[in-house]
Design a protein around this nucleic acid. Structure first.
Ligand SMILES: NC(=O)c1ccc[n+]([C@@H]2O[C@H](COP(=O)([O-])OP(=O)(O)OC[C@H]3O[C@@H](n4cnc5c(N)ncnc54)[C@H](O)[C@@H]3O)[C@@H](O)[C@H]2O)c1
Ligand SMILES: NC(=O)c1ccc[n+]([C@@H]2O[C@H](COP(=O)([O-])OP(=O)(O)OC[C@H]3O[C@@H](n4cnc5c(N)ncnc54)[C@H](O)[C@@H]3O)[C@@H](O)[C@H]2O)c1
Lengths: 229, 229
DNA sequence: TTGGCGCTGTGAAACGCATAACAGCGTTCT
DNA sequence: AGAACGCTGTTATGCGTTTCACAGCGCCAA
């Protein structure tokens, strides 16, 4: 069977927005938050682009998706632009997130997301180990994985992170989808196979480290390509 | 100042290989390892492609970079293909990796990489907290960050992972580059600015979760587009 | 006031990548 | 035997994204 690989997009209103644009908008907004926090009022495209490590042209093109225009003389007003990107990105209501697998990585993730994003909070943890369920973890209740369906429905969770061993990941993912989860972030080093209407993102740290190690061996000066034709 | 954004490539012999191809080759090899472990002898492109979640055409195209041809009747011999990809990817000698920041994430990473990759091992940890240095962590010595330069030279480390708070990440990265690191994997949620001959990869879990949450809100049936022609 | 400057927004071209299409060929079944 | 099948390796096509280039326009300096 051939895999149909349509680029993931989300139609919003009339326009369709690329996945890459969404990621960069999220990044821009985070940088804008920091700028606002540090008291910066206005910012030019080349400044913001430098902080995000993109070209100014791409930044401006990305901002075309947001309903806000900057001034040629002052640039963009930091807080206004941040709000406009937020209006584009944020859900109408806060989204609840579940975390499955309270192991080494799972606990680190808890610590990381603790009080970080107000409208994107971990509200339920799941595990299969009796010693780890029916407790509070960083102020969040943990349940046995068999209760997933009930808890998900009850709390209206439709986003989940998977941090269980690779051998259990596919089974856990199936359970979650069955429980109504529409979108997954998977840390286990297995490619999940799921219905096409479920969005899946893989963070494969092992592969990424290998990639980084591979590119550590590239020639020092990879930029110059002329010399003797 | 405008950022020149040349696609990262590595010239190997004559050919230049895309970054995306490298990532997929790493993924293929891991799957081949699992297949070999489970006793599979031969595999067809469509089977391997399904496990890697790519199309068979793309898989075959990627394999063009590797010096191995499969048989139209039996497919690819698992162990041979694995070795050929390894010959393409692996360094001539084992690579030593350093980990900076022995916090929640750092310790989880230690547990994850423990004994996982024989020729890609964490051989040194660094931190700034006196309580965390000059100890053994999962059989690996930890040093104060000020010793980075000495230890790096001594152990020939040229790859490092950064798992320190965002505020310290840029400073740590500069220190590492100064100590001779050529390639970085950064987990802190800041875009690092480094010389162009240093390879940097960002794993931005916060951004990724926001992305996943965003795409949880897409229309259920984004695939069907035909109906009345 | 007016000319020049620098930034924004956006159409158009260029590029890289994935997808489709095809030639070669060993196997198998009639 | 020979024809049809299925898989591989490779070339060609199409698409999406990035980059280039420029029009528009407020501000500032002269
Ligand atoms: N630790 C890391 O830094 C790291 C890095 C990259 C990837 N990963 C991946 O993340 C996953 C978890 O890593 P970890 O280090 O936390 O492992 P871990 O063994 O510490 O934790 C796994 C947890 O999952 C639970 N679990 C097992 N089967 C389950 C099931 N069917 N349902 C629910 N829970 C189940 C276990 O009880 C355990 O608490 C692994 O797939 C690993 O490859 C971890
Ligand atoms: N914990 C997670 O799951 C997670 C997820 C995504 C991103 N991150 C990012 O990873 C980084 C670390 O996260 P964490 O949860 O482990 O934080 P943490 O506070 O638990 O650990 C940070 C460690 O870095 C050390 N450190 C601080 N400054 C240093 C310096 N200048 N040099 C060397 N070491 C220094 C601290 O002593 C501490 O041990 C943060 O930037 C965080 O945003 C963490």
């Amino acid at each position: 069977m051939t895999i149909k690989r349509t680029p993931k997009r989300l139609k919003l209103g009339r326009k369709s927005v690329s996945e890459l644009v969404v990621v960069r908008l999220i990044l821009y907004r985070r940088i804008l938050r920091d700028l606002a926090f540090s008291g910066t009022r206005y910012v030019f495209s080349h400044q913001l682009a430098a902080l995000a490590d993109v070209t100014p042209e791409q930044l401006r093109r990305d901002l075309m998706n947001v309903r806000y225009e900057g001034s040629p003389t002052r640039g963009y007003e930091v807080v206004v632009l941040e709000e406009c990107i937020g209006a584009f990105l944020d859900p109408p209501t806060a989204q609840a997130v579940a975390l499955v697998g309270v192991g080494n990585l799972g606990r680190a993730l808890f610590a990381y997301f603790l009080g970080r994003r107000p409208l994107l909070q971990i509200v339920a943890a799941f595990d299969i180990d009796p010693a780890k369920v029916d407790r509070m973890i960083n102020g969040c209740p943990s349940y046995h994985i068999s209760e997933a369906r009930t808890v998900m429905r009850e709390k209206g969770i439709n986003v989940a992170m998977i941090a269980v061993p690779a051998a259990a990941a596919q089974s856990v993912a199936d359970t979650l989808v069955d429980a109504g989860v529409r979108s997954l972030l998977n840390f286990a080093d297995v490619r999940l196979r799921l219905p096409p209407d479920v969005y899946v993102e893989h963070i494969d740290i092992g592969v990424t480290l290998e990639k980084v190690a591979f590119f550590a061996r590239r020639p020092a000066a990879a930029e110059k390509d002329m010399g003797s034709p």
